[in-house]
């Protein structure tokens, strides 16, 4: 799936970087950042509630290129800024991580 598919799924894009056509190849769901850093595949989407700047640093290291922040968590402006600067697409949703993971996984089968 492409980053642009996330908008089609109804998720709100927070970043302005040009990531729409980036091909997301895998996904990882987790809130323990050390686990995400150790196990998330590259070119992936991370589904999480960790709405802070550290998540972007972890994404950069792990090769995560899109992040979907769940559960209506408020996203601080410095997180959006870091995502823009590091070519990470950042989205938010009111869905839980479970609901979002199921939807994104389904879309990835296309």
């Amino acid at each position: 799936m492409k980053v642009s598919d996330l908008e089609a799924l109804g998720y709100t894009r927070e970043t302005k970087n040009e990531m729409e056509d980036f091909e997301i190849k895998a996904g990882y769901t987790g809130d323990l950042l050390s686990d995400v850093m150790a196990n998330a595949p590259s070119d992936s989407i991370l589904i999480t509630i960790q709405a802070h700047k550290n998540t972007i640093a972890v994404a950069t290291l792990a090769g995560i290129r899109a992040i979907l922040v769940c559960n209506k968590r408020a996203i601080p402006s410095d997180m959006i800024e870091a995502a823009n600067d590091n070519d990470v697409a950042l989205f938010k949703t009111a869905e839980t991580q479970f609901e979002a993971s199921a939807k994104v996984a389904e879309k990835m089968k296309d």
Partner: peptide, 11 residues
């Protein structure tokens, strides 16, 4: 500590 090296340019 996990065997993950620091990347000064990131962290």
């Amino acid at each position: 500590m996990p065997d993950i090296e620091n990347k000064p340019e990131v962290f």
